[in-house]
Amino acid sequence: MNVPEKIMNSIIMSMSTHLEPAALSILKDVLIKNLSHYTITECETLPATADDSNEYILKLFAATKATKLSAKTVSYYVDTIKRLLSVIHKPLIDITSIDISYFLNSLRNSNDSVSLNNLRRNISAFYTWMRKSHLIVENPCEAVEPYTEIEKPIDHLEPTEYEQLKSGCSSTRDRALIEFLRSTAMRVGEVGAVKISDINWNTGLISIYGKKSHAYRPVCLDTIALKYLTEYIIERKLHTTSTVPLFTIRHSDDVLSAGGIRESIKCIKQRSGLKRRVYPHLFRKTTATNIIKRGGSVHDAGEYLGHKDSSTAGKHYSFIGSEHTIDIFRRYVQSV
């Protein structure tokens, strides 16, 4: 990292508690424009300690990269790096692939391969950011081989299990919720943003914004889902043009949070007597599995779930309109 970059990062870190992410981005552009005209040299100072160096890097991450990530992702990355530093007592810039392997191997007795690979990915992502920030030349995690994972069958609900789950619904909201998740295959974190008026009650079409993909995509409600959602809206004495959240806390217009949805699904499962784990993301997996079982391709499943095509062709040379997603729904998702 050269001196102008150090100055820029120092200013951004100092202002991160005073400015919103958008303003910080503008400030960075202004600093880049102005500092690019000067050659700056640094006065020699005493070398920083490992603690100082690591604290600086974590603060820089929070001020620059973290503003572009979800709070959950930031916490996941930072917690992993702090765990690494609790075992490897070195400056982050001096940690090697051997150090990272030692850290991960020290956790093998209490973690499976999937968990270890998740930690490895977090560390690698952090070091990729460090490399792009010119803090290091190479990402040491790239030399650490992933652990071999045993492939398990994709978790999903069989038709008989879904039928049994329905018996656990004790309210119109319960039934409307599970039919909504089945039909739309939405992420639990996306559901809360849907308002009653967002739904085209004639066609069942909803346009939602995916926080992961940073793009709008269509999802659909079949006649079964629309039936139970309509009953739920009527029970609440609301009109289809209402701008209140689609799913709310009972006897309130406050949105049902992701945690509230998880708890509701857990209670439905317990009342149904179903002897397996049921969680909101399971409906998403089930819909994807059904698309493939009914003759769709893996690409069709990914398209309906809103997975981004990261290939060059997918991003720049092919356009798939909402009509294709709706066609996937009609052919492979909607209840027969």
Rank of each mutant, 00 (worst) to 15 (best):
L69E: 13
L69R: 10
S70P: 07
A71D: 15
A71Y: 07
T73W: 03
T73S: 15
V74T: 15
V74M: 09
V78M: 08
D79C: 14
T80P: 07
K82P: 04
K82E: 14
K82Q: 15
R83D: 09
R83W: 10
R83S: 14
R83K: 14
R83F: 08
L84H: 03
L85D: 13
S86E: 15
S86M: 05
V87R: 14
V87K: 15
I88Q: 06
H89V: 12
K90N: 07
I95A: 08
I95S: 12
T96S: 14
T96W: 12
S97V: 02
S97N: 04
S97Q: 12
I98M: 07
D99V: 00
D99E: 05
D99L: 02
I100Q: 06
S101W: 05
S101R: 12
F103W: 09
F103A: 00
L104D: 11
N105L: 11
N105E: 09
S106F: 03
R108H: 00
N109Q: 13
N109E: 14
S110L: 02
N111P: 03
D112R: 02
D112T: 06
S113Q: 09
V114E: 03
V114A: 09
V114W: 02
S115F: 00
S115W: 02
L116N: 00
N117W: 00
N118Q: 03
L119A: 11
L119N: 02
R121K: 14
R121D: 13
N122W: 03
I123G: 01
S124A: 14
F126K: 02
F126I: 12
Y127S: 03
T128R: 10
M130Q: 01
M130N: 12
K132R: 07
L135N: 13
L135I: 03
L135T: 04
L135G: 06
P140M: 00
C141I: 14
E142M: 11
V144Y: 01
V144T: 13
E145P: 01
Y147Q: 13
I150Y: 06
K152W: 11
K152R: 14
P153N: 07
D155E: 15
H156E: 10
H156L: 02
L157A: 02
E158D: 13
P159W: 08
P159S: 12
T160V: 11
E161G: 10
E161Q: 15
Y162M: 08
E163N: 09
L165P: 00
K166A: 01
S167C: 11
